[in-house]
């Protein structure tokens, strides 16, 4: 992690002895630490709402954990639930609330990417 590398470097250079640039260095460190957040995208938010039901921890979970599925499958199955070509108990009702754009966005945050 970047933070650990920077601190390691600081210790190596013995920056705890006051040097003019150490305050700047520390401020940069603080800024880097602070910048872990970036804007939350709608896709992440949509994917996170799926997790309420799909957070099962292992393969015995009755409701599957979607992180084991290819993202392209998330897309195809959501569309199949939506148009009824795949019948389910509750997913048909849920999928009707998602547009093609919503499905494309959420699939960037759930399922195995690049598959």
């Amino acid at each position: 992690m970047i933070k650990k590398l920077i601190v390691h470097e600081m210790l190596r250079q013995k920056v705890f002895i006051m040097k003019p640039n150490t305050l700047l260095f520390a401020s940069i460190l603080c800024a880097l630490v602070a910048s872990d957040a970036s804007a939350i995208e709608r896709g992440e938010l949509l994917a996170d709402t799926c997790v309420s039901c799909h957070a099962g921890v292992n393969d015995k979970a009755s409701i599957p954990n979607l992180s084991y599925y290819p993202a392209s499958m998330i897309v195809s199955q959501m569309k199949a639930f939506r148009d009824g070509s795949r019948q389910a108990t509750v997913m048909n009702r849920h999928a009707k609330g998602y547009s093609d754009e919503d499905i494309a966005q959420l699939a960037k945050y759930i399922g195995i990417q690049g598959q």
């Binding site: 933070k3 650990k4 920077i6 601190v7 600081m10 210790l11 920056v15 705890f16 006051m18 150490t22 305050l23 260095f25 520390a26 401020s27 460190l29 603080c30 800024a31 630490v33 602070a34 910048s35 872990d36 957040a37």
Partner: peptide, 22 residues
């Protein structure tokens, strides 16, 4: 301040002051 800032990187981010910067 420097010591706190450096050690904050290894702890769960409690060392830096509570305002500003996230």
């Amino acid at each position: 301040f420097i010591y706190a800032a450096a050690s904050s990187a290894l702890l769960p981010l409690v060392g830096c002051s509570s305002k500003p910067d996230g």
